[in-house]
């Protein structure tokens, strides 16, 4: 991947963080919040090579952690685990099948909250992990799935065009 793409990707993640913090934080789905960065990252997983993906999740994780400013590394770890799992099976998946992609987005969101829950327990903030956390995690996953309906086709179209240009 060219350096310019990394810069654009970094800017995209920054923009996603801002949109997440300003826009989606106001629109909750029964308490569940959208994870735009996560959805973008998962959508990219289907189209990037392993080496590019490695850098992509590190950039996204670092930016997220720096923005939040607490539990630095938690997002790198959570994204890393998710990317690892998806990448392991993504070659067997058909990119054109949006239902599979949406299912993966939903499951990845569940895994994300699972990892975060474990990390919260690990750092002694287990009081956050309660029934409300579980409910919010579930609704956030549904929210992400709905977001995926827009983000995944867009990513598909962008990469389809990029590949065409390269060819």
């Amino acid at each position: 991947m060219k350096t310019i793409y990394y810069i654009l990707y970094t800017l995209l993640i920054c923009l996603a963080i801002i949109i997440e913090a300003t826009f989606f934080s106001n629109i909750k789905l029964f308490g569940g919040m959208a994870d735009l960065v996560l959805v973008i990252l998962i959508s990219l997983t289907f189209f990037l090579k392993r080496e590019d993906l490695l850098l992509a999740f590190i950039i996204a994780g670092v930016l997220m952690d720096l923005y939040i400013g607490q539990m630095i590394g938690s997002h790198i770890l959570a994204f890393g685990i998710i990317i690892l799992l998806i990448n392991r099976y993504s070659k067997r998946m058909i990119r054109e099948n949006i239902i599979i992609a949406l299912l993966i987005i939903f499951l990845s969101s569940i895994i994300y909250y699972l990892v975060m829950g474990v990390l919260l327990l690990f750092v002694g903030k287990g009081y956050y992990v309660n029934l409300i956390f579980i409910k919010n995690a579930l609704f956030s996953s549904i929210y992400n799935l709905l977001l995926g309906l827009i983000i995944y086709p867009l990513t598909y179209l962008i990469f389809h065009r990029i590949n065409k240009e390269i060819q």
């Binding site: 801002i18 923005y67 630095i72 590394g73 770890l77 750092v123």
Partner: peptide
Amino acid sequence: IVIIIRITSNNTLGLAPVESFMKQMLYPVQ
């Protein structure tokens, strides 16, 4: 990473300037 997470769960890891730079950069757009 886990160690960093553990440390930064309550305190910052000396990354405050980086965070503040990032937030400062993002502020106008935000």
